[in-house]
């Protein structure tokens, strides 16, 4: 009897069943749909079914997803544990470097401090790093932010002082205060070299730590 399988509720059910079965091998999907169609046809063969009858029939059949799951269990979700424990290390390293860069700016120090704190928390949370790794990350990478803040402060003080010194030295009035006029060049070079060495060391350590977390 064609009326049963062409009923809108039945058509909708079969559409959902076909969609759910699409992850099965084609012959198994077709077999399941054919079996269910036959079941519905047989159930309604004795006469025109009322809408309530059809709803009951479909309810008793069960959800299309459950029928398909009976043939093949739904694909497992990607395992949450490695995904959530694995990717803490790279963000931690990135945040600590970001904090360091922000430390060099006056207006971004607050953002830097936040990145620094979150970065250190992530280091502590890591499940892939040993205690020694975490210590190295905290000492070599985590020191970046305070070291840079301190460096910027000291440089500012030094520049201010040297400028102040220049101004007070020109009491004659011929000379005006100029930027960094009285500041000797060599401390700048020493600090620059130290900074380059420090950052290079940090990059090497960061690469090793990331490799260890893989």
């Amino acid at each position: 009897m064609m009326t049963s399988t062409s009923h809108p509720l039945v058509a909708d059910y079969l559409t959902r069943l076909r969609a759910a079965a699409s992850r099965l091998p084609a012959d198994e999907a077709a077999g399941l749909v054919a079996d269910i169609e036959e079941h519905i046809a047989a159930a309604t063969a004795t006469g025109l079914a009322s809408e309530a009858d059809i709803r009951n029939l479909l309810d008793r059949l069960g959800r299309p997803d459950d029928l398909v799951a009976e043939i093949a269990p739904p694909p497992a979700l990607p395992l949450p544990t490695p995904a959530s424990t694995r990717r803490v290390e790279a963000p931690a390293v990135t945040l600590l470097f970001v904090a360091e860069v922000f430390a060099l700016t006056y207006i971004g120090v607050g953002v830097g401090a936040l990145a620094w704190i979150v970065g250190l928390i992530l280091v502590a949370m890591s499940l892939r790093w040993s205690g020694a790794h975490k210590l190295r990350a905290a000492l070599v990478l985590g020191s970046g932010f305070p070291v840079m803040v301190l460096g910027v402060l000291l440089t500012s003080v030094a520049v201010f002082r040297s400028q102040g010194g220049t101004c007070s030295a020109t009491s004659a009035g011929d000379q005006t205060c100029t930027d960094g006029g009285g500041m000797p060049i060599w401390p700048g070079i020493v600090v620059g070299l130290l900074a380059i060495t420090y950052v290079t060391l940090q990059i090497i350590v960061a690469r090793r730590l990331l490799r260890a977390a893989r």
Partner: peptide, 19 residues
């Protein structure tokens, strides 16, 4: 099977039959 109370959703019998 349904009358005997052995199946909760009748449709799941068909996958069993094909197995």
């Amino acid at each position: 099977l349904a009358e005997a109370g052995l199946v909760a959703s009748e449709g799941t019998v068909y996958p069993l039959l094909s197995r």
